[in-house]
Write a protein that binds this DNA or RNA. Sequence first.
DNA 1: CGACATGTAATGTAGCCGCAATCTTTGGCA
DNA 2: TGCCAAAGATTGCGGCTACATTACATGTCG
Lengths: 224, 224
Amino acid sequence: MRILLLEDEPEMARALLEALRRRDVLADHVRTIADADAMARVGTYDVLVLDRRLPDGEGLDLVAALRQRKYPVPILVLTALGSIDHRVDGLDSGADDYLAKPFAIEELLARLRALQRRGPAISDKYLNFGNLSVDPRSNEISIAGSVVEFPRREYLVLEALMRRPNRIVTRSNLIEAVYALEDEIGSNALDAHISRIRKKLVQAGAAAEIRAVRNIGYLIRAKA
Amino acid sequence: MRILLLEDEPEMARALLEALRRRDVLADHVRTIADADAMARVGTYDVLVLDRRLPDGEGLDLVAALRQRKYPVPILVLTALGSIDHRVDGLDSGADDYLAKPFAIEELLARLRALQRRGPAISDKYLNFGNLSVDPRSNEISIAGSVVEFPRREYLVLEALMRRPNRIVTRSNLIEAVYALEDEIGSNALDAHISRIRKKLVQAGAAAEIRAVRNIGYLIRAKA
DNA sequence: CGACATGTAATGTAGCCGCAATCTTTGGCA
DNA sequence: TGCCAAAGATTGCGGCTACATTACATGTCG
């Protein structure tokens, strides 16, 4: 599962991100409404999670704007304001669920799953690029029409790249996507994974390749 | 406002063209993907509007092809297929907005205006000048429609110049753009990079050139 | 115990990039 | 206008380094 988290409080954000990552929920984190809007335009998410009070405005305004544009992804609103009135405001604006702080991480996860399940038959079913297709729900990858097995780490790297085809994904992004925070990585483990992924890609006849961007990271793009 | 309309159904096309004309929107109308591709290469448009099902193929394939060539103009996709899955496909392929038939002309016009308005933001993704296009997100440069490889330092120099076309960028600015602070540069390394960039530019048929400004720096400008 | 995943390390390798040598252009000045 | 010094342009060369690949050890799960 893949979510966009819009949260400006550093502590809350960090705790959430860590908890989500342990559950294999991939979260993009932004701190402003403007950034969230931009990410929602280009990214593909299962659920959007946002705070109400944000440095550049009111979260519900973003909800309204997205819904006005028929943005189809379910939205869950976090807030420190737990009163019923506010809750109604949240739902009226077009959000799909509402969660008052403080809350148990487990409850958040349960609600995310619920939203994903009942979600308007959304989208993130597959990440497609070239003849590659990644299914984030089953963690299956198919290349040129047939399923190719990838071990966990390799899968996570490739999924991270597929989330942003044609765009550079930094080494640190990739490492974050693959490893829990506490895991320390000492050497060229990432390089080794890339190498193994490449081997599988060519072996399966993928129409995409992974290129290194020196000193920065990697990107996946159409094969020359 | 000036748009390119790719629509093969005669009735729909005629109705749209008339409505657009009343709103002082200049529309070029083509019926095939091939024609649209040709027009996009030579014409200058604010928005490209296209249908999905077309006599010579699938409209989204054109979108993908244009985006692969870094074609910077916002694209709005019309379709009779209104399901969310299709919507996501459309956005994934690189389109900027999506409109399901049937729709009110007013809504189309509103979306066109929106795309035009945020158009600069889109081309902000790309730095365009002449037939050069720089994509800072992938560090890719395309010249006359095809991608040209630039090594890291050359890319950084060219990107810095492309951020201020027709204006002088000082040597120190360029060096700052290319080198980390601690890196000291002892000789004419910058000149060497400029030279190598120039060679690639002429080789790729760029309609721009880099001129030296004695004792100050360099600038990029339209080729004589 | 066997198969597989995955971090680590050793080794290979490509190609970037700085340097310097040489050639060309420019502009100041008489 | 002609000359010269300085700035810029070009190009080959070689070292460096990040990346690639492979083998191996360790861990893990059945």
